[in-house]
Amino acid sequence: MELCESDADLIRKAQNGDRAAFGFLVERYMKRAYYSALGLVGSPEDARDLSQDAFARAYRARQTIDPDRPFFAWLYQIVRRLCFNFNRDRRSRRDKLRDASLWLAEEAEARAPAPSPSRVLEKSELCRTVRQAIEELPEREREVLVLKEFEGLRYREIAELVGIPIGTVMSRLYTARKHLAAALSVTMNRNPGEESGR
């Protein structure tokens, strides 16, 4: 069996009882599944657990997979259902979403050309503000935001994964960013120098 085999071939083999074929599918999509779960539950340990659970459920339900349709879109439905259930149970236990600094990193240093120390501090504070605001977003808005910003998907891909029209993707993104903008403006009002630094 080769790693470059198509998803459809691997699914057909898995449906015929070939566990190794399913293993290739897992290796192909484990990172996407993990990061999708991470964006929804905000805890690395839970994201690993839930994404692995999703694959195990996918394996048990492998006979219902249509090999001619995208495998990850099907798997994502299981991942998001498990994550939403997990969040609901967590809310009922009155737990909060884990600190987003555990799962969101700041890449500014790697991308920007040598900023000044004060600029780094301002940027870090803005990032902290945005991370906190992301934690507080309703899960449907957070889902669309992380798929766009941190997984780099296009609107069409998000619409297909989440099962909503492209217009709704854009509306949810707008609402999510509006929340983040409100949080940012509070920080910027505290540090007026940041705006002029842009």
């Binding site: 990061y35 991470l38 964006g39 690395p44 555990l102 799962w103 969101l104 990193a105 700041e106 890449e107 500014a108 991308r111 920007a112 940027k123 803005l126 990032c127 945005v130 991370r131 935001l145 910003e149 941190f150 707008y174 960013r177 509006k178 983040l180 903008a181 940012l184 403006s185 910027m188 705006e195 842009r198």
Partner: peptide, 15 residues
């Protein structure tokens, strides 16, 4: 405001 948000989120990624 949206541009500022985009600038900040663009500089972030998953750990």
């Amino acid at each position: 405001r949206m541009g500022q948000v985009k600038e900040v989120t663009r500089s972030m990624s998953y750990r």
